[in-house]
């Protein structure tokens, strides 16, 4: 009864509020046309978006969770990259 595996696709949708395409999930489809069709049926039943991207899952290169520290920790100590690091006298008001 075993069936051959159908390719996996990742689905990204841009919502109507103008934000970037956002990953919403994945699906199986034989080709890009069918993947788009299935993405429409599975992920936009309630007007969730105005644009869909489908990307073959195996085309995605992901960072290694084991290297999370090396990748992201350096940013944690650089608090001077945030506006709240700087003092502005109260009299100046909102800046």
């Amino acid at each position: 009864m075993a069936t051959p595996n159908t390719p996996l696709w990742e689905v990204f949708i841009r919502s109507r509020n103008g934000l970037a395409h956002k990953h919403v999930g994945s699906l199986h489809a034989a080709d890009a046309t069918l993947a788009l069709q299935a993405a429409r049926d599975i992920y936009t039943r309630r007007g969730e978006g105005l644009s869909i991207w489908v990307v073959p899952s195996n085309a995605i290169t992901a960072s290694d969770p084991a290297e999370k520290g090396m990748m992201f920790e350096p940013a944690e100590t650089k608090i001077y990259r945030h506006p709240t690091f700087y003092d502005v006298p109260d009299e100046v008001g909102h800046m």
Binding site: M1, A2, T3, P4, N5, T6, L8, S26, H28
Partner: peptide, 13 residues
Amino acid sequence: AETLGTSREELVD
């Protein structure tokens, strides 16, 4: 479920 390493086909079967 598939993200845990079992294929869709195996699950359905």
